[in-house]
Amino acid sequence: MKSRLKILRAERDWSQAQLAEALGVSRQTINAIETGKYDPSLPLAFKMAKLFESSIEDIFIPDDG
């Protein structure tokens, strides 16, 4: 699964560490999601959507989509 997390983060000028703190996860988790190595759980995806004031579909793009 691809994500627009890096773009959304850059738009707000946030570092990975700042985003990680806002979401209550480690910086490594943010990095793994951004590089597509890890797909977040549904609760974390909802948390991200709430933080970026968008929908989950706006942040995550399925590989076949």
């Binding site: 209550g24 996860v25 480690s26 490594q28 988790t29 890890y38 977040p40 759980s41």
Partner: peptide, 8 residues
Amino acid sequence: SLDELQRR
């Protein structure tokens, strides 16, 4: 107490 990736 770890986050989801660390726990995995």
